[in-house]
């Protein structure tokens, strides 16, 4: 007979889910290749652009100095969210979600396993590219030093909040909402000012931009690369926003999950 009790939180269950996705990654070289392919293409394109613009003079050359840092940080944000969302979509694609939902796996454990997988996918995809950037373009991403940790943490937190919300929407609306997980982050590309200062935006749009945690990170990155100043205030602002975003996304995910139970859509996932 089965055990009389089941712990309300279990690292073993999180590990089981991480194993499930690790087995999958290990068995599929196209999946592994895909992790590194786009970050590499992006880095090469922006690296050449940065090299070309660095040969110019004036403000343009100075701005170009931030392109590679910007594109690598953008990839942390984008790939972090995709890494999270992929783990969820894999369950939908394989019609396995109902098996998980009737198991003792708690929603928080499910979410933590997706967070772990997002970090693993990110390390597989982005870390090698940072070393290639050093080799091809002499750009030392790791030279951002301790600030890199703050940038990295804040961008990952945002990526998980967005990933969680996307997972909830797919859970509630089925694979018809899958496109959102691929495209939602591109809304952030212009608004979070990845490649230009916030001051470039129209005045009315700037307050909206500042409610997005990555805006502070990209602004902080430019301060570090161009002025050699670490803006702790911006990092704290981003962290505060991220706490609010994660809380809202967690609340939204649970609401959407309950809604999918009300609609009975968990019985037909993958269709």
């Amino acid at each position: 007979m089965s055990a009389a009790t089941s712990p309300s939180f279990s690292f073993s269950r999180i590990f089981a889910m991480v194993m499930r996705h690790w087995y999958l990654l290990r068995s599929s070289w196209p999946r592994l290749l895909e992790l590194i392919y786009w970050p590499l293409v992006q880095m090469v394109m922006w690296g050449f652009l940065q090299s070309f613009m660095a040969q110019q003079t004036g403000a343009l050359a100075m701005a170009a100095g931030t392109f590679l840092a910007a594109v690598l940080l953008w990839d942390i944000l984008f790939r972090g969210q995709l890494g999270f969302s992929f783990s969820f979509l894999e369950e939908m694609w394989s019609r396995n979600l109902a098996n998980l939902m009737i198991s003792p796996l708690r929603p928080i454990e499910f979410v933590l396993s997706m967070i772990t997988m997002s970090v693993i996918r990110l390390f597989i995809g982005v870390v090698p590219v940072t070393f290639l950037a050093m080799f091809f373009f002499g750009f030392n991403f790791w030279g951002l030093g301790i600030a890199l940790g703050a940038f990295f943490a804040n961008l990952l937190l945002t990526s998980w909040a967005i990933g969680l919300l996307c997972a909830g929407l797919v859970l509630r609306n089925g694979l018809g909402a899958e496109g959102l997980t691929w495209s939602i982050m591109f809304l952030f590309l212009p608004l979070t000012c990845v490649y230009y200062p916030v001051a470039t935006l129209p005045v009315w749009l700037q307050p909206i931009s500042w409610t997005l945690p990555p805006t502070a990170v990209f602004e902080g990155m430019r301060a570090l690369v161009l002025e050699n100043v670490f803006r702790a205030d911006l990092m704290l602002w981003a962290l505060g926003l991220n706490i609010v975003w994660i809380a809202l996304a967690g609340w939204g995910f649970m609401k959407l999950m309950h809604s999918s139970k009300r609609m009975g859509s968990l019985l037909s996932v993958g269709e």
Binding site: S2, S94, R95, N96
Partner: peptide, 14 residues
């Protein structure tokens, strides 16, 4: 839930 389980041809394993 840890004392239950379910089998259906309409749910797959990865």
């Amino acid at each position: 839930l840890h004392r239950m389980n379910f089998e259906s041809p309409y749910i797959d394993l990865p």
